[in-house]
Every structure is written in C-alpha cells, then in structure tokens.
Design a binder for these strands. Structure first.
Lengths: 152, 152
DNA sequence: GTGGTAGTCAACAATCATTGTCAACTAACA
DNA sequence: TGTTAGTTGACAATGATTGTTGACTACCAC
C-alpha cells in the first residue's frame, strides 16, 4: 500500500523533514515521464529554485531509493536514471541516443531459473535490458547509409 | 568460425598492427578468468610492461570490442568489465562486493517477447542481470547482524 | 636488410559523474 | 519562540574515461 502514497508522504512517514528542496524534487519526479537523469532533474529544479545544489538532488534521490520509493538504475549510458515505475518491467536502451523505454516484460518470467539454485547467491532483483537502436536512430542510420556512401 | 581464433589472430585479420602492447593485453584477457575491470588489466599489464599507459588499455579494449572479439559490459559497479565469454549467458552481480559471475541462462529465452514487436526498436542484444548478495557477503552480513546488534 | 609511411603509443590535460567535508541554516516539536 | 537534530550549498576531491599530440614503430615494398 505504500505505493499509493506520494513521494512526499513517504518521506514524512519515515521521519524525514519536508524541506522545500525535497518537495520540489519529489514533484519533479512525479510529473516527469520517462527516465530522467540526475542532471535532467537538476536542471528542472534550478529553473524553479536556482540555489538548488546538484549534491542535494543526489542526496534526495538516494534517500528516496533507500525508502524503496524510486529506483536508481544504471543502463550503461553514463550516470544513473530515476525509475519511478516500480511495476516489474524491462528496458529498451538505444545505443546511439541513450533513450530508455519501458516494456512490460516481467524480468522474473525469464526462462528456466532452476540453475540459479546451484549458485551460492541470494537474488534480490532481476533486470532485463534490450539494447539496440530506437526507431529514430535506426532511420537516421539508414538515411546516412543511403546518402553519402562513404562515411565510416 | 572467427570465434575459435585467438584475439591476436582476430586483430591481424582486421589489419591492425601486432604491437607488443596489444599482444600483452590480448594474452592477459585470454588468461584471466572472470570479468576483469580495465584497471585490473592495466595493473597486470604494467607489472610486465611498466610503460603501458591506461589509455592504451582502453583503446585496445575498444578495438577488440569493435571487432566483436570481446564485449565491454557495464553492470553498474563503476567502470566496465571485459567479457570474454561470448556464449549467451546472464550475470550475477553482488551489490556489496561487486563480484560478477556468469550463469548459463540464455537472455534470449526470456519469456514472451511478442510485445517487443509493438515497439519501434531494433533489438540487437539482450542482457539479464541478477542482483543480490554473493555467498560470502550474505554470510558476512548475517555474522554482523548476530554480533553487535546495532550497527546500521 | 633499409626506408617510407600509416598506424600506434605514452604523457599529459581535460571532462564527466559522483562523493566528501563542513559551517550555516531551518523544519519540527516542545 | 527557542532548541536542536537534520539538511543544505559551496567547494574540493575522487574515479573513470576521453582528447590531443609529437615521438615512435610495425609493416610493406624494394
């Protein structure tokens, strides 16, 4: 049920102070679709509250992640991204533009996992990433191949 | 068939010069088990050839990756790791010590992938990561919990 | 073997993401 | 409204990676 709470409510429930900075960051996360980078949020935040420091954004994100209110994922595109969609899903990651998209493929539904039992390892979380080219980048690549042949 | 070639042979086939640096790096990759970081390889390389620069290690790894002879994977533990096992498999990543282990779970066998067709995205590669605690770290955590209660 | 040349290398500086430190500040509660 | 523990912003530091460049060298032709 905590999942129906807003991020701010979750902060309060855990005894964290409701500072204006946290308020703003939570709001931005809730109203931003996709998978913003820390820098993305920082830019949006400073637009509203110019004194906001990048450090505060990082700190707040780690706090929210610690509460399980968000997840910080690293898809290998440099820096991590804020994941506010907590439903089980996988990611499409464009190797050219770095765009990240959700796909409703449950990582827990991965094929036969019985082999895992042979390993001395406590699995806590599963992650599935599909890498490749998004539509835009695939088109851009195709156009470039047609146009001026020699460019690689 | 190129997969049965040594890394050095693959370099040669693609017209890259066989410098002593590349020779050494290829050798180190082939004789190192697990998933060495760039820094790991750099340390081993400088032990043999002290003049080796970190830049050269990076450059060579990118070249090998460009040929498809190795893969550079980023499992979110800071810096990437060299993957010389090109068979389809997945990874166990310890969130505490950062250890990476291979498991023979084919990422392509992930459940129902038909939903992917609805997305305008060309999938080139699939990646599955299981995150959690390795045996050693799980034990260490349990011991700490028993001993001095209050430590978090 | 020797010379020419394109491809490589080491050194060094620069960049990017992230984290540490700490004094000043403020939300929460009495 | 005062007290105080928890937060914040400024700033420096770290760690990983990348850019630049002149010197160097593996390779090919002779």
């Amino acid at each position: 049920m905590p999942h129906s709470h807003t991020l701010i409510e979750q902060l309060r429930e855990h005894g964290l102070k409701l500072t204006p900075q946290r308020h703003l960051i939570c709001q931005l996360i809730e109203t931003t679709h996709g998978h913003p980078t820390v820098e993305d949020l920082y830019e949006k935040a400073t637009a509203v509250m110019p004194s906001m420091s990048l450090k505060t954004v990082y700190t707040t994100l780690y706090e929210l992640a610690g509460l399980g209110a968000i997840r910080l994922v690293n898809v290998g595109t440099g820096g991590f991204r804020v994941e506010s969609n907590l439903d089980p899903h996988s990611h499409l990651v464009c190797r050219r533009c770095g765009k990240v998209m959700d796909v409703p493929v449950d990582p827990a539904a991965t094929a036969d996992l019985s082999v895992l039992e042979q390993y001395d390892f406590e699995v806590e979380h599963r992650e599935v990433i599909f890498r490749g080219l998004c539509g835009d980048c695939a088109q851009a690549g195709a156009r470039r191949d047609q146009g001026h042949e020699r460019h690689s």
